[in-house]
């Protein structure tokens, strides 16, 4: 493999949020995959998804780790500026879960023995919150996310009204655990490492995982604006190839310990990385980083996400052609051209 010789741009800045699935970007930088493809990349730690969207839209960032629904929402101009975006690479699959605080989890544990039986878990949870005398407060991070859709889907499946039976609030991931431990919230739906950390910290237990709710699900993607992709096709290709190789590195079990060391470097996951070293949650969140079924930003998957936006009332235009929007944003074609050997 040779690096393309005429990259339009070699110095890039990419945004990330300190979650476990920023790992492909961290590895691509720290293990020299960006360099191999002639790229010099600064990784910029961002404090919110909103900031990632704005900085990518206005070209302050060349691209970023994004929640899979984000480039679709930006392209449609939902809740913000309309900026067409694309992704040619998914960074990760799964890795979300709903965690309950200690009190609620212990109470539920008295009625649930088989946590694999979702019907029982759901009906017991419903009975429990009805008997609480107040609405349980459940937190998510960002409205255009699997977390948000999975939580709403699961509640609806068990006839629990998100509007009447629970109080949904939004708080930043770094504050989730603190709020759960203090009893300010009763649970959260968020990505790793925040579910594992609650278990390690004995602040709560898993209600269910995103994998149990939906099965395999695209989680984070590499997002860039459509304009950036048009102007920098060779750089885009080099970027996607480099991160794809980093994903392959991540999939090798002998690299597990080194990954934790890389993630614990400032400014990545900082101290929380070391805490999860060697920890295996009781129910696997099935978080994966490599494989065609993982890294392909599939048009079907994009369409599924758009349907969730409709189901949650975020996308009210019924006339919209979901498949063609998905095709425009989730660039299966580029992935197939660049990432299949």
């Amino acid at each position: 493999m040779t690096a393309p010789t005429e990259l339009e741009k070699t110095k890039l800045t990419l945004g990330f949020v300190a979650l476990l699935d920023c790992a492909p970007l961290v590895v691509a930088r720290e293990k020299g995959f960006f360099n191999k493809y002639g790229l010099s990349v600064v990784l910029s730690k961002e404090s919110s998804w909103a900031t990632i969207r704005d900085k990518v839209s206005f070209g302050i960032l060349d691209g970023a780790q994004m929640l899979a629904p984000m480039p679709l929402a930006a392209t449609l101009g939902l809740n913000g500026n309309k900026t067409p975006m694309v992704t040619a690479l998914a960074l990760s699959q799964n890795g979300t879960a709903i965690t309950l605080g200690k009190e609620l989890f212990l109470a539920l544990s008295q009625h649930v023995t088989d946590w694999d039986n979702d019907e029982t878990v759901g009906s017991q949870f419903k009975a429990l919150i009805k008997s609480m005398g107040r609405k349980p407060v459940i937190a998510t991070v960002y409205p255009y996310s699997n977390h948000h859709y999975q939580l709403r889907y699961w509640l609806k499946k068990h006839n629990i009204s998100f509007a009447d039976d629970v109080e949904l609030v939004a708080i930043p991931p770094t504050k989730m655990l603190e709020n759960l431990s203090n009893g300010l919230i009763d649970g959260y739906c968020v990505g790793e490492p925040w579910n594992s950390l609650a278990l390690i910290n004995q602040s709560g237990g898993l209600l269910t995982t995103g994998y149990r709710i939906w099965g395999t699900q695209i989680e984070k993607v590499l997002g860039v604006t459509a304009q950036w992709a048009d102007e920098n096709p060779l750089t885009h290709q080099a970027l996607v190839r480099a991160i794809y190789e980093a994903c392959e590195w991540l999939s090798q079990s002998e690299n597990k310990d080194e990954l934790i060391e890389l993630l614990s470097l400032p400014p990545y996951l900082d101290r929380s990385a070391n805490l999860i070293k060697g920890f295996t949650p009781p129910y696997s969140m099935e978080q994966r980083f490599f494989g065609n079924e993982v890294n392909l930003p599939g048009q079907q998957q994009g369409q599924f996400l758009l349907e969730q936006m409709q189901a949650c009332g975020q996308l009210s235009d019924e006339q919209i052609d979901l498949f063609s929007i998905s095709k425009q944003v989730f660039r299966e074609d580029l992935y197939r051209e660049w990432c299949t050997n």
Binding site: S48, P143, H148, V169, A170
Partner: peptide
């Protein structure tokens, strides 16, 4: 711009028409 609270505001905006929305 770099406040982690921005996502909280984004979320509130999608949940109720009465809440302020991102400037467009």
């Amino acid at each position: 711009m770099d406040s982690p609270d921005r996502d909280t505001l984004e979320s509130m905006a999608t949940m109720s028409q009465n809440n302020p929305r991102p400037i467009v």
